[in-house]
Design a protein around this nucleic acid. Structure first.
Lengths: 344, 344
DNA sequence: ATAGTGTAAACAATCGATTGTTCAAGTCAA
DNA sequence: TTGACTTGAACAATCGATTGTTTACACTAT
């Protein structure tokens, strides 16, 4: 099975996977006939016995249509790609899973790819029908090839260009967190923000400030610190915030990883959570329930974003009109032990 | 740019990306000439002015060779895939990153794909030159199509079949953990094992038992509990272990996620770590440093495994002889606050 | 002047499928 | 019996590249 031979013009040569021609020959029909039978072509009927014979032979020879040939002929690959900056970010895993399932529903394979956008896009031409670019640093410039080579959808990142985008309503998530803390009685709230050169980091920070102002609460520069989207980033940023003369009574972290760094920094400095400072996180993942103390967090519709992005991308591929959109699925706040009323 | 037209036989039709033919026509040469120039074909020289002209036109028209056509003609896609059960597992992210970098070095794109192996493999024929299958449950049977359709390497999973595999020396990692605990003075060591239907889970458990026996330490069934590879799995399994009449003084968790569940379960039951029970984890990730208490963990050569798998796969593709191997890169034990000598 | 040589570029086959068109053999009605 | 239809299957073009083989031309040496 692993080492068949193929006879061509009398000679036997080493062979790759079975080709349609071999199925056709083995069943005594033309390749066009075999093709139509295997694809259930409605424009042409075949005698039942012929059909049976072809299907049986195809099965026996373990025939799989060659995707490259199919793509070349039909100019369709039935594959999509999602390009992510890195795979270790759980949020991307969620988005990707949502996209994968939706793509599968529509008969597409989803390839996850990571690396430099411009380089990758070049090597993807002809391999996929469209691509989703997951949020990355806004200082990663998109060259003219982005969007021009194939249907493209930006995920959680807006760009002033004709490229379409799907964005989560970060504002609603931040709003839910602030509202929760205010209800608990907090007035002095700080923010461990994501990098300024990310669209999400900037949006969440803006939303944070608006939410405080809308409630007449103080927005203090020393209570806002920027850190990379990682445990370490959250840790370092927190150290800066707690060195302020007056400390906030609550902190909102921009991701769960950040929040875990926040918790570690507070713990290392003998600051009790939630006794001294409450901590709440944007985004939610199972891990959040298991850290100490369990994290109050707001679950955002990441899978939904992935799924919706696929829908939009498929519309784009079909030449249908699409509009940029902000996903309106409401965030869900899961209160856990990391938030409590401020000390009296 | 996004909406060019292409003239064919006098008619103007909507067009996709630029084709080689268009470059050739625009520069007044044959497609074969254009192809040779763009590929630096050493078998044929071109007048410098012709070369310049073709390159310039190709650049101006933003030409990208069509991967499908190339693949069809050359029967090479220059793409590999790694198939993982899910993307939220950080260990796979590491393996994948190692594979991606190595693949890029060799001029290959790496696609990460998740889902059901047998279904995916079918839809991958002709899209990639080879595939790596990351460890999954051993009760996911591999059909005959696995390994027969294209060069295949199994990652961290052995199967009694002609399919090649690369495996990490789990035994060495477990050994390092046991040795560390024994050095601290522990004799009563338990294991929160991975699912029995995973190759890794089984291997680590076996190694754990051998390590204890080799030291004449007791292997108590009640100190060994199996749980899914997740925080919750670790949590539940730990509850079972601590309900034993006599408790171990140390626990080895099969992954970091598991270990975090272990810590949560011990905390929820008022058991101090490392005061009452020490906890150490197989595998290591940045997160491990930031939980409470920071986890002693053994870093395994995950990236190296990914890189090595690509090397082996490429050899397989080139028809070179390859052998199954166990990666011998030594594990690195990072001692942190979760382990300490047992209470006197 | 002519054969020989080398260079630059065109010609043409091919990869493995799909699909519009043509063809051959029955079937049926008049 | 024959012409019109239907049905089942073959024929052939095509997708966009690569690559082995010619061709056309200019130049050189005899």
């Amino acid at each position: 099975m692993a080492c068949r031979t193929r006879s061509t013009a009398g000679a036997a040569v080493a062979a790759g996977p079975t080709r349609l021609r071999e199925v056709a020959i083995a069943s005594g029909v033309d390749v066009s006939t075999a093709s139509r039978i295997l694809n259930n072509d409605p424009n042409q009927s075949a005698r039942p016995e012929t059909r049976e014979r072809v299907l049986e032979v195809a099965r026996r020879l373990n025939y799989r249509r060659n995707a490259a040939a199919l793509a070349l002929r039909t100019t369709k690959t039935n594959a999509l790609a999602i390009l992510v900056p890195n795979l270790s970010n759980v949020a991307y895993a969620e988005v990707t899973e949502g996209a994968r399932l939706r793509a599968a529903d529509e008969g597409y394979v989803l390839f996850v790819v990571s690396g430099t956008p411009s380089e990758l896009l070049s090597s993807l031409t002809g391999r996929i029908d469209g691509v989703m670019l997951a949020a990355s640093r806004t200082d990663v410039r998109f060259g003219p090839e982005v969007g021009a080579l194939m249907p493209t959808v930006l995920l959680n990142r807006h760009v002033a260009s004709p490229i379409n985008s799907i964005i989560i309503d970060d504002g609603a998530g931040i709003e839910a967190l602030v509202e929760h803390l205010v209800e608990l009685g907090h007035a002095d709230i700080g923010h461990i923000a994501g990098p300024a050169n990310t669209d999400t980091g900037a949006r969440r920070l803006t939303a944070f400030k608006s939410a405080l102002r809308a409630r007449g609460l103080p927005v203090r520069a020393s209570w806002i610190a920027v850190g990379e989207y990682s445990e370490e980033g959250g840790y370092d940023a927190t150290l800066r915030v707690i060195s302020a003369r007056k400390r906030p009574t609550a902190l909102i972290a921009s991701t769960v990883a950040t929040a875990i760094g926040v918790l570690a920094a507070l713990r290392d400095n003998g600051i009790d959570v939630p006794g001294d400072i409450s901590v709440a996180s944007y985004d939610d993942v199972p891990l959040a329930s298991f850290v100490s103390p369990p994290l109050t967090a707001v679950r955002m519709p990441l899978r939904e974003m992935g799924a919706r992005a696929v829908e939009v991308l498929l519309n784009l591929i079909d030449g249908l009109p699409v509009e940029n959109e902000v996903l309106q699925a409401p965030p869900v706040l899961n209160q856990r032990a990391s938030t409590a009323p401020p000390r009296a």
